[in-house]
Design a protein around this nucleic acid. Structure first.
Lengths: 240, 240
DNA sequence: CAGTGGTCTAGACCACTCT
DNA sequence: GAGTGGTCTAGACCACTGG
């Protein structure tokens, strides 16, 4: 999966590292596509593909007739090395200690929002669970999740104390391919106030998300409520 | 600008419209890249480029050895037609009546966050203004903005009642090229509570953003506070 | 005018899925 | 084995920038 020996990924990762570490400085011009092609023994098209990915991540801009330049916000931009895009709470925090407290775990019929987003029937069954998630012992968010038992069978309590996504990728031959998210602000309820150690008037960042397997099937509907001081969402928009 | 006679944009827009209108239904297989190439008189590479853009927008998935399929969340996905990516409040709400109330407008030295994000000196001058923004007369958000006078000269009060971005694209030869955003939840202050017609305990969606011209220069630092019930943020993540 | 990146093609080969 | 999409190339032409 995600083979990093591909030329365009090698070039992307190499240029990305040189930008982030400051080898290429802000506003500095990058080598020309043709020259990078020679350097990496790649065609101009392959170099262009790698550099277009850097544009999408907000690290560089390209100006026709002029050249390519490191963007001002390069070090702040949302950019991960190719082949290591993280999905899920555990994978998103590799440098911190992730722990969980299980609030609820049952098998029930799906909620209306789950039915709608995962294309289920009222009579289907789903794993229904909620967890408080901690980073280095500090409460960070509460997740409310439903996963159909037909798609991902065999979830047990010990999976919930660890990473559910890891269980899925290990126990099935599927990979997690994509995630659609909606971000909102809302207020905490009493359960959240107690478990996240906040006041009920404190704001909450709500993420509503549907996660997809690599066969195109949506397998998870989840609402995540973050402490507002433990989460922010980064985004880059590029004109078409 | 953004020439829509390009083949890959035509193909992207056409397929996108057919997915959104339901001509291609959820989970339905799209025609093969080769067949679409014949149909649009384009090479397979050009068709692939258009379809990869659909993947990025969350409208389809591609499975090697199998084909391409309309994604479940296709109609909910974040996708705009090529050549019409909107930047700014006015352009993002073409179907509603946008109006503004000016709270403050002055020329001052930049705030520390502006200095840091736009690479200014303490001794530079910026336009400093804040506006309440209304959709169909309903208060929606407050924007707090600073723009260096050296980069975009000639902003006047009547520009602030309209779209500042439109003023920039009309009065300068620059285009707005990209925007880096950070999204958070926070609480309203008394000014916001009064102007947005909400309570001080109500949550707020905060967008902190830096906007770039097509020469790579950041020209605007802005904080936008939205009513939590008038804004949500959509996002699609694709594994690399 | 020379030189940049943008688009597009034809063709090749590979990795993968399904039967 | 047949057929899909993924990667990569060499080469062409175009649009744009700057001197």
């Amino acid at each position: 999966m995600s083979d990093n020996s591909l030329k365009y990924k090698i070039i992307f990762n190499d240029l990305r590292a040189k930008i982030i570490t400051g080898y290429y400085k802000i506003n500095q011009q990058l080598p020309l596509e043709k020259e990078l092609g020679d350097r990496y023994c790649a065609s101009r098209i392959t170099v262009k593909k790698a550099m277009d990915l850097l544009v999408n991540d907000g690290l560089i801009i390209k100006r026709r007739g002029v050249g390519s330049f490191v963007k001002g916000a390069a070090t702040l931009a949302v950019s991960a090395p190719m082949g290591s895009k993280p999905f899920g709470f555990t994978a998103s925090h590799p440098d911190e200690t992730v722990s969980s407290k299980l609030i609820e775990f049952s098998v029930v019929h799906p909620q209306p929002d789950t039915i709608k987003n995962l294309y289920l029937e009222e009579t289907d069954f789903v794993y229904h669970f909620s967890r408080v998630r901690y980073l280095d012992k500090q409460p960070c968010c509460i997740e409310y999740t439903e996963i159909p038992i037909n798609i991902i069978p065999g979830i047990r309590i010990d999976n919930l104390m660890d990473s559910v996504y890891r269980h899925i990728e290990v126990e099935t031959h599927f990979r997690i391919q994509s995630q659609h998210q909606t971000v909102r602000a809302c207020r905490a309820n009493s359960l959240e106030a107690e478990n996240l150690h906040i006041a009920m008037i404190d704001p909450i960042m709500e993420i509503e998300q549907v996660t997809y397997l690599d066969n195109g099937m949506p397998f998870e509907y989840s609402i995540i409520h973050y402490r507002h001081d433990r989460y922010e969402f980064h985004n880059v928009n590029i004109a078409s």
